[in-house]
Design a protein around this nucleic acid. Structure first.
Length: 896
RNA sequence: GGGCGCGUAGCUCAGCGGGAGAGCACCACCUUGACACGGUGGGGGUCAGAGGUUCGAUCCCUCUCGCGCCCACCA
């Protein structure tokens, strides 16, 4: 017999192992079934499960389990990402704790060390995903640095390079001084910083005492200034265009140029141009053919080697000796020293507090430094074109649709994607340099050597590029690299394009867009047909979870406390379209109550000999009760299907919840109790129906709450242990005269509810049974009441049901159900004044409704312009309201 | 600066042109033989505000207010 409450801890581990060992999660490439594929967004290999994972994996697992039960050949492709910067950071931090560093170790030993770290911690997240119940096809697990996937990366790089879509260039890039690596535009985030705007006097050359004042937040970069720009239409400076300014501290003469980049509204309207350290200045420099000296090195310290030549002392303006003291200083220290010196020289006109946006590395948290370096770039603009077209044409659809705008906005404004990183952990760029720096891009060192030999006519020593690729480069290949590309595997042919990608909006650009670019280019087809974008998990107050706020909720703690099913059901319930979800322990606790409720419904069935009956044909059910609950189950199936098809997880959950709790438990099982007690053929049909419907419910719920449903499926004998996961998704069954069954049962439900309401409001003690008298009831209503005497008696605490003959007794409470008035003779219990007030309230409510409808129907404009069916519906409602009103008034007269 | 989203019962959210809903919380009663992680009944909303379109607006349009997010050139 089932325990009184469900104990997830005792069951989950065993059930999961059973599924996994039986191969229940495995794709079946050889099966005739239509495939259904989801690629997991690969979590960081060394990561641990957080709420965001719990959300995304629960939703994916729900879809996968549903489609699997529908008979599709499901492939849910698992794997992990090497997460270049993130993982390197972790290992470097550990080295620092040991008093070592990656430089001390050297490249080879360091990379070795990262692999070891992966061995130690790489299994954590996959273990945690198992606890959540994720039915991933584990034997197919991939890692972005697996040999096969690495080969795919090299093949893509080589191909795109050959096509001119990957190239090496010396460009201004976002440089992260902490990691000492370039990062992409996406890895830069703007942060509001309270800074200072310094107004600096640049003396006009050959004009004693004249200045042009520039405003800057970055005086340390002025060492690399090559011009001062003003707007061509700015009258204030027109006379100065074409003249020269003397660059303070340095003494070099720099031109005053006219360029529309200069904004007369900003600062002083004159802007210093430092092409090597500012993206806009770089463009100005290119337009005007200006030199581009760098004054900051890879650590963002001052370097002077590119500007020494132009330095010369100028009294009261330039001081090369001071500048020399800046060499090797940190950018912020240099800033202070420069400002101090400018002030001493009287060149600081003004300094004002200034709030501005400063780009920071999203992982390092330090201000980004635009730096002129050699890097590898990918022509994202070109690759984006077919991806944009695919979304425009609907080959790939975003759900919710609005995300397509975000996607387009970004895809139509791309810059070249900087794909090289000056890190050690990652895919090393497959490019080799000859003695004269000729580049050989090849899949392997051997091929590069062969190409070099052909090129030079002799064997030469090659040096491989030191850089690795952006992590997202390999992630972009995930939908096909995991399936064996560049080999033409059966999996690739069968499972690409995938069906759905489920992920958060935060990686639409990083990942989704790039998979679409690469998928199109290499597979000539979209990587997925639907992109489902879910929200963020927040804490119960709507705050973003963050370590710094201390509001992190650990999904594993929730699983320990309430069970995986409860966490999963809570997530599914909360996942509506385009909204963040607020999840706290209270929600999960509520979801656990639901799981317990199902458990107890099953326990009731077990106790009452309700067992699955393979002989049972639902379409032959005769009892209205049976046909009614089967019809209810049919509707729940329809609702669940529609909801899941539309990715409405919330509606799927509420369809199950409502049917299970309010229809099956609250009414059906309660009605079933007397029938079961009666025994005989009728009880047998009720039993078989109950078993059938419970089976339907377990199947419907399995995608959301797999563990408890699987346990019950087994314990109640629905199928062999561990088989629910592969059992067919429920289909609606034919129900004879469903409308008739609904009419009958709905009336009974209404009658019982009315009697209960009256009793509660009249404070009739539950222990007191009351008879009810039916006035004006039609013969069929009386027959119906007679048929349901037992259930009504039990559920409404009614001792007997009689038609009212003659005048009602004194001291009654009354309620209207359709054409009949239900009279409860309460004699000494009833408080007449209270009953009058109660009926009066009812009359008021119905009267207001009737009045409203009457007015509406009296409105000529409404009747003539509204659609006929709407008018008709309103007429029917009015008739019903007026009839009820009349009965309520009659009831009031009786006790007046 | 540009764009997107959201303001509906105390809380969390559905609904998005014709009767204001759910879950939780709350109040009252109930330890009734599946379940107190339960049962029954109940109270609670000028659907942010103002205009407009319409026979009719929580729903469509405009504006205002409030909240959140994304993108954007460190003057």
């Amino acid at each position: 017999m089932l325990e009184k409450t469900y104990d997830p801890a005792a069951i989950e581990g065993r059930r999961y192992a059973e599924w996994e060992e039986s191969g229940a999660f495995a794709a079946r490439p050889e099966s005739p079934a239509r495939p259904f594929t989801i690629m997991v967004p690969p979590p960081n290999v060394t990561g641990i499960l957080h709420m965001g994972h719990a959300l995304t994996f629960t939703l994916q697992d729900t879809l996968i389990r549903w489609r699997r039960m529908e008979g599709r050949d499901t492939l849910w492709q698992p794997g992990t990402d090497h997460a270049g910067i993130a993982t390197q950071m972790v290992v470097e931090r550990r080295l620092a704790e040991e008093g070592s560093s990656r430089r001390a170790l050297g490249r080879e030993a360091f990379v070795e060390r990262v692999w070891r770290w992966r061995e130690e911690s790489g299994g954590t997240i996959t273990r945690q995903l198992r606890r959540l119940g994720a039915s991933l096809d584990w034997p197919r697990e991939r890692f972005t640095m697996d040999p096969g996937l690495s080969e795919a990366v090299r093949r893509v790089f080589v191909t795109l390079h050959r096509e001119g879509l990957i190239y090496r260039a010396r460009r201004l890039v976002n440089w992260d001084p902490k990691f000492q690596s370039a990062i992409s535009d996406l890895e830069v985030e703007s942060r509001a910083v309270k800074g200072t705007l310094w107004h600096i006097r640049y003396p006009i050359a050959g004009a004693g005492g004249e200045f042009i004042i520039v405003a800057t937040t970055r005086p340390e970069t002025m060492l690399g200034d090559v011009a001062v720009a003003v707007h061509p239409a700015d009258g204030r400076y027109r006379a100065l265009i074409g003249r020269e300014a003397v660059l303070p501290l340095i003494g070099r003469r720099i031109p005053i140029i006219a360029d529309p980049y200069s904004d007369p509204e900003k600062g002083t309207g004159a802007v210093k141009i430092t092409p090597a350290h500012d993206f806009n200045d770089f463009k100005v420099g290119e337009r005007h053919g200006l030199p581009m000296p760098s004054v900051l090195d890879r650590e963002a310290k001052i370097r002077l080697d590119e500007i020494r030549e132009g330095m010369s002392p100028v009294p009261a303006v330039a001081d090369p000796a001071f500048v020399e003291t800046l060499a090797g200083q940190d950018r912020f220290a240099a800033r202070e020293a420069i400002v101090r010196t400018l002030e001493e020289l009287g060149l600081l006109a003004k300094s004002e507090a200034h709030q501005h946006q400063v780009p920071h590395g999203d992982r390092s948290g330090v201000p980004i430094e635009p730096l002129l370096t050699w890097q590898w770039f990918c022509n994202a603009v070109e690759l984006a074109k077919p991806a944009i077209a695919a979304v425009e044409s609907g080959q790939t659809v975003f759900v919710p649709r609005q995300w397509e705008n975000t996607f387009f906005a970004w895809m139509r404004n791309l810059e070249p994607w900087c794909i090289s990183r000056q890190l050690w952990w990652g895919h090393r760029i497959p490019a080799w340099y000859g003695p004269d720096e000729t580049i050989f891009v090849a899949d392997t060192a051997e091929e590069a050597a062969a190409a070099a030999e052909r090129h030079y006519g002799r064997t030469v020593a090659l040096r491989q590029d030191e850089d690795v690729l952006d992590t997202w480069f390999s992630s972009a290949l995930w939908p096909f690299s995991t399936l064996g590309w560049p080999e033409k595997t059966p999996e690739l042919a069968r499972y690409y394009p995938t069906d759905v990608l489920v992920t958060g909006f935060d990686i639409i650009f990083f990942w989704v867009a790039r998979m679409m670019m690469m998928g199109h280019h290499f597979m000539r087809d979209v990587p997925f047909r639907t992109v489902y974008i879910h929200g963020l998990v927040r804490d119960q107050h709507g705050q973003k979870m963050a370590k710094s706020k201390g509001n992190i909720i650990d999904p594993l703690e929730l699983i320990d406390a309430y069970g995986a099913d409860a966490l999963r059901f809570a997530i599914v319930q909360l996942t509506g379209p385009g909204r963040d979800i607020k999840l706290g322990p209270a929600r999960v606790e509520t979801a656990r109550s639901f799981v317990t409720k199902i458990w107890n419904a099953a326990r009731f069935c077990e106790m009452n000999g309700i067992r699955p009956d393979p002989e049972f044909r639902p379409e032959t059910a005769k009892r209205p009760l049976c046909r009614w609950v089967l019809d209810g189950a049919n509707r729940a199936i329809h609702e669940a299907n529609a909801a899941l098809e539309a990715f409405r997880f919330d509606e799927y959950a509420s369809a199950c919840y409502h049917f299970a709790w309010h229809l099956f438990c609250d009414w059906f099982l309660e009605f079933a109790k007397p029938e079961l007690a009666a025994g005989g053929a009728e009880a047998a049909e009720v039993r078989a129906t109950a078993a059938h419907v419970l089976g339907t419910l377990l199947r419907l719920l399995h995608p959301a709450t797999p563990f408890a449903t699987e346990e019950l499926w087994d314990r109640l004998g629905y199928g062999p242990s561990g088989s629910l996961i592969r059992t067919a998704w429920p289909a609606p069954v034919p129900v004879a005269d469903a409308a008739g069954a609904r009419a009958e049962l709905d009336w009974v439900v209404r009658l019982i509810s009315e009697v209960r309401t009256v009793r509660a409001e009249m404070n009739v003690p539950p222990a007191t049974l009351t008879p009810i008298l039916l006035k004006d009831a039609l013969p069929e209503t009386l027959a119906r009441a007679e048929r349901w005497r037992e259930a009504i008696g039990r559920l409404a605490r009614v001792s007997q049901i009689r038609p009212l003959e003659g005048a009602p007794p004194r001291g009654v409470a009354q309620a209207v159900v359709d054409e009949a008035t239900v009279i409860l003779p309460l004699a000494e219990i009833v408080d007449l004044a209270q009953e009058r007030a109660r009926l009066d309230r009812e009359r008021g409510k119905v009267g207001r409704e009737a009045e409203r409808l009457k007015q509406k129907l009296a409105d000529e404009a409404f009747v003539s312009r509204a659609p006929e069916d709407v008018v008709e519906e309103n007429r029917e409602r009015l008739a019903a309201a007026e009839a009820e009103l009349a009965r309520l008034e009659a009831a009031l007269r009786r006790i007046a």
